[in-house]
Write a protein that binds this DNA or RNA. Structure first.
Lengths: 192, 192
DNA sequence: CGATAATGTAAGTGAGCACTTACGCTGAGT
DNA sequence: ACTCAGCGTAAGTGCTCACTTACATTATCG
């Protein structure tokens, strides 16, 4: 048996670059040639790692979400000041959009009639809301308990708040200061 | 002088069809051939009405926003029950996304590094927030007055709420019932 | 009528792009 | 040292798409 495959390692190595390209440019604007160049390999190498461009995009979606979740997980580790939800708000107000999380959603949404992309996108968005929901309920148990349904609604509204803040950033509609303020003030109102 | 140009009339006639295509499919997925077919004309006719595909898209953005605004204007006409903001919430909870308003934003956002498209998009989004803001302040003057800055923040948060509801609809993440509930409940919380 | 510009039809054109093929090199197992 | 799969390079291939060109027809004015 000659040589063992390094495909998995290579995939892990290139995925951040691929995800970066999609988050930056969107699906259609990213060409496979562009991907190959950014990765420093030829196109057919990408095609040995993934079946087609769509698979690369879906892998990127998952990668981006895993990454944000990992970062969040650190935030809610052992050392805690204030409730988790409060820290999430504070963190997001500072770093929103940095990892292309929302950007890749918009890219996907305009391809939303492709069933595979839809599925990947929906899974990611639902996971996002679920994560926020956990923080909301944790926060409320500690402070002001409320209905379960209401917590879920609040979580969705918070996701929406994050989304609009990202859009205003993307389009240059609000200053950094105002964005932070918006997320903090309205976030608190929704949280309680 | 032979024959007077009908170009303006033709533009007005075709714009709804063009906008519909973009709202449905996004920018990249719409081909000029597709546009021509939907409009029942040849491609070069479209090119006599607009300089290029980008101009068609920008015209569509403006058209879609004008349309929603017109519909809203009717809502806030002479006959009034409850505050305008309350009616806006109720209306949006039922008809959200129907006119492709949000869909076209997502399409544009993934093309957001084209400066012309950015500008058109930013103008539209800012107008949207301004409109919501007017409703919020009108509502608050009548009920519970609050700071100006806070009203602006609340307006942005409401825009975000609308956006997340559209996304959940687009991705099939919430049932109709829940979406209406989300918009109504959280909308009210942000409004006051 | 006859000149002229608007309107329409039909057939390109050339560039970009997703994806493929052909082939040479490398290095672990026997 | 020979084999054979993994890995890499280079050059296509065929298709789609934004945009154009050439030319026929029509309507309005003097």
């Amino acid at each position: 048996m000659p040589r063992v495959s390094q495909a998995d390692a290579k995939r892990r190595e290139l995925l951040p670059v691929v995800a970066g390209a999609f988050a930056e440019l969107g699906y259609r604007r990213v060409t496979t040639a562009e991907l190959a160049e950014r990765c420093g390999v030829r196109e057919n190498i990408l095609y040995r790692l993934w079946a087609d461009k769509k698979s690369m995009f879906i892998a990127a979606i998952e990668y981006v979400y895993d990454l944000s979740e990992k970062i969040w997980a650190e935030l809610f580790g052992p050392k805690a000041t204030g409730s988790s939800a409060e820290r999430l708000l504070e963190y997001e107000s500072k770093h929103l959009g940095e990892f292309g999380h929302s950007r890749i959603i918009f890219a996907g949404l305009s391809e939303a009639d492709d069933p595979d992309i839809r599925k990947a996108l929906a899974r990611m968005y639902a996971r996002y809301q679920k994560f926020v929901l956990e923080q909301v309920t944790a926060h409320r148990d500690a402070h002001t308990p409320a209905g379960k349904a209401d917590a879920a609604m609040a979580a969705w509204a918070l996701v929406g708040l994050g989304t609009v803040v990202t859009i205003t950033k993307e389009l240059g509609l609000l200053k950094e200061r105002d964005r932070v303020h918006l997320l903090a003030e309205m976030g608190r109102r929704l949280l309680d």
